[in-house]
Design a protein around this nucleic acid. Sequence first.
DNA 1: AGATATTCCTGGAGGC
DNA 2: TGCCTCCAGGAATATC
Length: 268
Amino acid sequence: MPELPEVETTVRGLERVLKGRKLVRVEPRRPDLRRALPPDLGQRLTGARVTDLGRRAKYGTISTDRGDTLVFHLGMSGKWRIDPAELDKHDHFVIETDEGRRLALNDARRFGSLDLVPTDELAAWPAFAALGPEPMDLTARELQRKLAGRNAAIKLLLLDQSIVAGLGNIYVCEALYRAGIHPRRPGGSVSLARLERLVVAIKEVLAEAIEAGGSTLRDYAAPNGELGYFSKAFAVYDREGKPCSCGGTVKRIVQGGRSTFYCPRCQR
DNA sequence: AGATATTCCTGGAGGC
DNA sequence: TGCCTCCAGGAATATC
């Protein structure tokens, strides 16, 4: 269930193993994840040297000296396993470096994706071109402009990657809680002052999550490759019926087919 | 154009 | 214990 902080943590972990390394073996172990993999993926990556790693929204990028960038999305269950003792049935893509390190992209539910894009065309790549600003670059003014006239619930609009790119269900719930905004409030009805609070809340909750991820990088790099969510207790997410610090009770509703958790006393 | 529903997939949880 | 249903998640796609 990786959102932006988990992808950021993943990229930082991969960077330590991959940056500057040559890929001596590249093995797609099935032809597709969510979509078909590029048929020449193995051929185009084998023998290439990794120059850079990066992140855009919830996508990770691995660029090579051949002018290609491998773009991965972890979907909901994806994770990279570092030096797994043995491969399991959900290790769908495996690469090996000239130092003998092995990385396996494991994705039980296969909602993830792998694409190979010319590095100089990345910004124009359709999936990237459709993305809104990175949350860390977001301003209240810009958010206000994007929400103007929109009647849909603020919760749903914040999940729209063209409005702001990288937020998922968990951090949207947490950010709205911190900003004191009711998840059902129409997007266009949130005042600039409250959007200011919201933008600060988004940046803070993501920064804290990345910080927590950084502190668990050791675990991430362990043979089992597990990468947990920001494991500090969430204030509202998955806490239906439990107490809020205000004395109220966390409530769960369904919006757009997915759960929203919020405190009816704190969020208006 | 905006809003809403559906689709992909598997494992884990809970009910009986 | 086993079988069934339901649910979680992100984003593309379809339909109103």
